[in-house]
């Protein structure tokens, strides 16, 4: 018996057959601690076993009560994260008019991954929260959710799109940052919670003997020569810095887009002026600390 079995679709080019295969693959992985081979564009909802669903629902309702969230909870739905492939259980809360009010997301081990309040409550008489007060408010909200904020100071910025203060603790593993992961709390100016997110991508094992920073620089220099980037005007190659990164197809377009796992890497930032451009272009290249291979990167738009 299952709580729900509904299919949603995001990519029109994923055929019904493809979806069926993806869902079947996902079902085989449910509760086995495995991840599907590739679901990068799919958002297939899977069944949540009844016993697990009851637990997920109860936890979501209890948490919603703690934060005074509005809405009626729906049945939990299990999906695979589009990037990491990790299975997540989501409970949506709906208002009386049917609109979404809140979303509570937990990992299959019960860890709180995300809590989002989609309502727009009127501002009360509370003392407005400013940038200086936002971290304290974030710690209070995280405490109420059961998540522990790190002792280190967060980075606080105003997030206009969320209409809230974004208080961010970048995840670190053995002192090395994972810039795309972290514990993020969006605090409304009233002090109420807008959203919190605890992104903890799966980790590959750290290498016993990482390649050296010098070897990483040599690998990137070879890449620059191969692509003739070493001829670019005003080329600057920054010093390597260790980071946990999600591999991608930036360096190797043939690389797959399957589920990603954080890998320890040396990240090297490049700056140069392409021919005919007046502005500098920034690029980051990631060198796997275990193998010395280039495993991804990014650039500014």
């Amino acid at each position: 018996m299952y709580h729900t079995m509904n299919l949603s679709r995001i990519d029109l080019r994923i055929t019904a057959a493809g979806m069926a295969i993806a869902v079947a693959a996902g079902l085989l992985c449910v509760d086995l601690g495995e991840r599907p081979a590739t679901l990068s564009l799919a958002h297939a909802a899977l069944a949540v076993p009844v016993a697990r669903g009851a637990t997920v629902s109860a936890a979501a309702i209890e948490l919603a009560g703690r934060f005074g969230l509005a809405g009626t909870p729906g049945a939990p739905v299990r999906t695979a994260d589009q990037v990491t492939g990790e299975f997540l259980d989501t409970v949506d809360f709906r208002r009386a008019d049917g609109r979404l009010a809140a979303e509570v997301v937990r990992a299959v081990d019960g860890r709180l991954v995300r809590l989002v309040d989609l309502t727009d409550p009127p501002r009360g008489p509370e003392t407005p929260v400013d940038a200086a007060r936002a971290p304290t408010a974030a710690r209070r909200l995280l405490g109420a959710s059961g998540l522990a904020a790190p002792a280190s100071p967060p980075v606080t910025t105003w997030d206009a799109g969320m209409d809230a203060w974004c208080v961010r603790w970048v995840r670190t593993i053995d002192g090395v940052p994972a810039p795309t992961d972290g514990l993020v709390t969006w605090v409304r100016p009233s002090g109420r919670l807008k959203a919190l997110s605890d992104i903890r991508s799966p980790l590959a094992a750290a290498p016993a003997e990482p390649v050296t920073a010098g070897a990483a620089t040599l690998a990137v220099r070879a890449y620059l020569r191969r692509l003739h980037l070493d001829r670019m005007a005003d080329l600057v190659v920054d010093a390597p810095r260790l980071a946990w990164v999600l591999p991608n197809a930036f360096v190797d377009p043939a690389a797959g887009s399957g589920p990603s796992t954080l890998r320890l890497a040396w990240t090297i930032t490049l700056g140069y002026v392409p021919p005919g451009w007046s502005d500098r272009h920034a690029v980051e290249v990631d060198v796997d600390a275990a193998t010395g291979a280039l495993i991804g990167g990014t650039e500014t738009a």
């Binding site: 989002v116 997110s197 999600l246």
Partner: peptide
């Protein structure tokens, strides 16, 4: 927008 902002693994 809000759900994507809260769920996407992005640098700050």
């Amino acid at each position: 927008y809000t759900l994507a902002r809260a769920s996407a693994a992005m640098s700050g």
